Computed example of a mutant assay.
Amino acid sequence: MQFVFDGHNDVLLRLWTHAKDGSDPIAEFADGTTTGHIDARRAKEGGLSGGLCAIYIPSGDLVFADPDADGRYITPMAAPLDPLPSLAIATEMAAIALRLDQAGAWRLCRTVKDIRGAMADGIFAAVMHMEGCEAIGADLSALEVFYAAGLRSLGPVWSRHNVFGHGVPFAFPMSPDTGPGLTDAGFALVRECNRLGLLIDLAHITEKGFWDVAKTTDQPLVASHSNAHALTPVARNLTDRQLDAVRESRGVVGVNYATAMLRPDGRSDSDTPLADMIRHIDYLVNRIGIDCVALGSDFDGATIPEEIGDAAGNQKLIAALREVGYGEADLTKLARENWLRILAQAWREDHA
């Protein structure tokens, strides 16, 4: 079995949402559930040994657009969020992450050594990530607090605008060049992430924002859950020029399992063959190299191919890649080592 470290999931959002309805998040993750994509049992069954677990503030006004007769769609951008309610929700999700750690349901990791130790012990290695920084004010004071709680990765924006920058809409077909990039506060955020050693994720940012980060950061460029725009031209996917910049920085692109970002027609349909995933992986490997491609499932946040189903089915992708000729050394890089290299570099660790 190839153990997988995954670049993005929304399990904290699911646990937080269910907790609002009375569910115990520790029991739901530790004991297993029939809902969502990830819990400890299914993760172990599928070799999902850990990943970046997102704190994400939901946009209640967002309604995904249906494709027209030609398969085109543009989902209107979600409205910006108020900072104080966002901070409250983010704090509640961070508390769930800490409670899971204290209960031994997973291990909240702050170093690559922590990740490797959790994997060796058979415990899910969770890294706290923030997807969209609405909970962090422009003065960045909350960033230090979340860092102390275990935050080690963040994306300045989700697919909505905030004080730090602009996100891309969910749209097909569309270029990621949809609006402005970083604000002055966004540039300050990037510099502070560099100072602290926080990974910066470019998965939802506009193309102009991508280039703003690229010219400011001292880290490799990372898109935790994005695919190739040349194959599926949704606004969320990366152009060849962006991919080339990731390669030049020796960064990473985590292949997103979301079917709308894999299919040639851009549709959200679980009846999507693994061949579409392999098509994107092959393209990325050929364009940017085996050392710069990883996995970013978007479990618990997207429609994924039914052949995978949930975390328990993760090895089906590994098996499919093996069948088309990927050897074990390359699979090890794709499954986990490329992520661990990038995290060690962003976190300024001597050894991954």
Rank of each mutant, 00 (worst) to 15 (best):
P173Q: 06
I278P: 03
G179Y: 09
G301Q: 13
C193N: 02
M261Y: 15
Y56H: 14
R41Y: 06
G251T: 14
D66Y: 03
G132D: 12
G122W: 00
R191V: 06
N286K: 15
T178K: 05
I200M: 07
H18A: 14
S23A: 15
K113E: 13
S249K: 09
L81S: 04
I290W: 00
L340R: 01
S153P: 10
N256F: 04
D218A: 13
D6E: 10
D240N: 15
P176H: 09
F164D: 11
D10P: 05
G50C: 04
A312W: 09
Y147W: 13
A105I: 06
V293M: 01
S153C: 14
F299G: 07
V213F: 04
G197P: 01
G186P: 09
G122T: 00
V285L: 03
A69C: 00
P156C: 08
F146G: 09
W158N: 05
A302C: 13
L62D: 08
A78V: 01
A344P: 01
V222Q: 03
C193V: 02
P273I: 01
L343P: 00
G122D: 00
T303H: 00
A148G: 11
Q242G: 04
R42N: 10
S86K: 11
D276R: 13
W211S: 06
D82M: 11
P233W: 11
R322D: 12
A43T: 13
T33I: 08
L243Q: 15
N227I: 10
A90K: 10
G117T: 07
L199I: 03
A245Q: 13
A302K: 08
C292F: 05
D114Y: 00
D10M: 08
F64G: 01
P67M: 07
E248Y: 06
A185D: 15
D330T: 10
D139W: 08
S86H: 10
L62F: 12
P233H: 11
I278V: 15
T178C: 12
L182K: 06
K208V: 13
A54W: 07
V234G: 14
I281F: 01
L100H: 02
R236V: 12
P58D: 02
D31T: 12
A79I: 00
S297V: 09
F170R: 14
P58I: 02
M130R: 08
A88M: 11
S297N: 10
N256P: 03
F170D: 15
T217I: 04
E337A: 04
R241L: 09
D24H: 04
A245G: 08
G60P: 07
A329S: 14
I205P: 01
R241S: 14
R247P: 02
D300H: 08
L295M: 15
G254I: 00
F172R: 12
T111H: 01
V253S: 04
S224L: 05
M77P: 05
I200W: 05
G181V: 03
G150I: 10
P25M: 01
D244S: 13
D298H: 06
I38W: 05
F164Y: 15
T34D: 14
F64L: 14
H351I: 09
P220A: 14
H229C: 00
D330N: 13
Y326V: 01
